[in-house]
Design a protein around this nucleic acid. Structure first.
Length: 418
RNA sequence: GUGGGUGUAGCUCAACGGUUAGAGCAUCAGGCUGUGGUCCUGGGGGUUGAGGGUUCGAGACCCUUCACCCACCCCA
């Protein structure tokens, strides 16, 4: 029989990695709470149309990377490939635009993209997502960067870069698009195949190419950043000003572009060289038209997503030692009969009491206790029972002492020493 | 979807085309009746990813296929 294993790109997450996930989540919740975000859980499955409309039907995500299938009722459904679409849907569906002047929400959960897996990229991956609706002021842009910095610092992430840029609004982007196309049209012969495709579909993306020739060509091409409209330029200047008020240094990368269609003005990316080729582990930006495009009132929006798997690769293993453990070793059936009462007493007292389920020699139980890194072992055999006591061994210094054979009193004692 | 790399014990890896495929770690059991880590002895555990081919003989060579890893496209 062939062993059943996980689907390609899907994984079991456990042990050290899961510990890091939990730590990341808890540090995130600390700062998102301090900055006034509330958490929300959204469905993993949504109508396909939601993603097509929000992400853009010519993006790679929508064109070839979604887990999409047809429901028995005939609806086309999709496992969410990113969080913002669902966040916007929820914001509109729950009518939050009418009940609060602005909304700060966050969410944590799995996302799905049907891509070829590689380092730091899986078909099921996890994102921490943050969105702010209804604030057009650049202060919030800087506040999000501040939040990211606080989280990364507390997690002990060492080397990372925060890059920011502005991709402008509809008007400055439209006019620039023509300028860019004109520029590249005359240099078509120097572009790689992929970039020729990009030129047709989304010329801005040529800036993302890793091909050396293409990088050369973009080297002296006009930049969107330099032809922003007055409003977008002002917004970016204010953003920079607030960042310096927060005391955060960032790099302005005028070539930074985003893969999703809905971004406007501020975009940013946090990268690390310790990640392999997929070096961005946090990315986000402003999307001032998205809510309206999704059928809501004109509402500014901005958000970012943290790739949890990628961030976990950068988080140092926490040195904090788990709680001290105790083991119950018994010799013979008479002693074994006491196990349950000790278990009950210890759990009630908040103590972890490990034990072997099958009857083994004392030696084997000691080995097992050692293996489990237990700090204390309770030893109970005929000797102890006859004398009305139980032996408590300290595994570290091998000292032993006797306690009365009374589960509650022993549990109390363990609370003190363990 | 494309390119490259790798598939041998639970894990990390050996084995020039030539006996019965090994080692370390892990696991289990012993080393005078009830005491762990180090040490000694032993046990269990494999269709060498799968299928075909070449050969007197294949873990190794060839073909096919599958899986994983890395990279491209793209993205967190």
């Amino acid at each position: 029989m062939e062993k059943i294993r996980t689907l390609r790109g899907f994984r079991d997450i456990f042990g050290e990695e899961l510990d890091k996930f939990r730590r990341i989540e808890s540090v995130f919740r600390k700062y998102s709470g301090l900055l006034g975000f509330r958490e929300i859980e959204l469905p993993v499955l949504e109508k396909t149309e939601l993603f097509v409309r929000s992400i853009g039907d010519t993006t790679d995500i929508v064109e070839k990377e979604m887990f999409t299938f047809t429901d028995v009722g005939g609806d086309s459904l999709t496992m969410r490939p990113e969080a913002t679409a669902g966040m916007v849907r929820s914001y509109l569906q729950e009518g939050l635009y009418a009940t609060e002047r602005m909304t700060k929400v966050s969410s944590i959960g799995p996302m799905f993209r049907h891509e070829r897996p590689q380092k730091g990229r899986y078909r099921e991956f996890h994102q921490i997502d943050v969105e702010v609706f209804g604030v057009k002021e650049a202060l919030v842009d800087a506040e999000l960067i501040f939040m990211i910095r606080m989280i990364l610092d507390e997690l002990g992430v060492g080397r990372y870069r925060i890059e920011v840029n502005s991709v402008g609004c509809k008007t400055c982007r439209e006019s620039f698009r023509r300028v860019l196309i004109d520029y590249f049209e005359t240099r078509k012969d120097q572009l790689c195949e992929d970039c020729l495709r990009r030129l047709e579909r989304n010329p801005l993306r040529i800036f993302d190419c890793k091909n050396e020739q293409c990088i050369d060509v973009t080297g002296d091409s006009p930049l969107l950043f330099d032809s922003l409209c007055g409003e977008c330029r002002d917004h970016f200047r204010l953003f920079e000003g607030y960042l310096s008020d927060f005391g955060i240094g960032v790099e302005i990368n005028k070539r930074l572009v985003r893969g999703l269609d809905y971004y406007t003005k501020t975009v940013f990316e946090v990268t690390s060289e310790d990640l392999g080729a997929q070096k961005a582990f946090i990315a986000g930006g402003r999307y001032d038209n998205l809510v309206e495009e999704m059928g809501g009132p004109a509402t500014a929006g901005i958000g970012f997503a943290i790739g949890v798997e990628r961030l976990a690769m950068l988080v140092p293993v926490s040195a904090e030692k788990g709680d001290r453990r105790c083991f119950f070793a018994c010799v013979g059936d008479r002693a074994r009969a006491h196990l349950v009462s000790f278990l009950k007493a210890c759990v009630s007292a908040g103590i972890t009491l490990k034990h072997a389920y099958d009857a083994k020699s004392l030696k084997a139980q000691m080995r097992y206790a050692d293996n489990l890194k237990c700090d204390f072992v309770l030893i109970l055999g005929d000797d102890e029972i006859d004398r009305g006591i139980i032996t408590l061994r300290n595994m570290a210094d091998k000292s032993q002492r006797e306690l009365p054979l009374d589960p509650k009193k022993v549990a109390q004692e363990l609370v003190v020493v363990a």
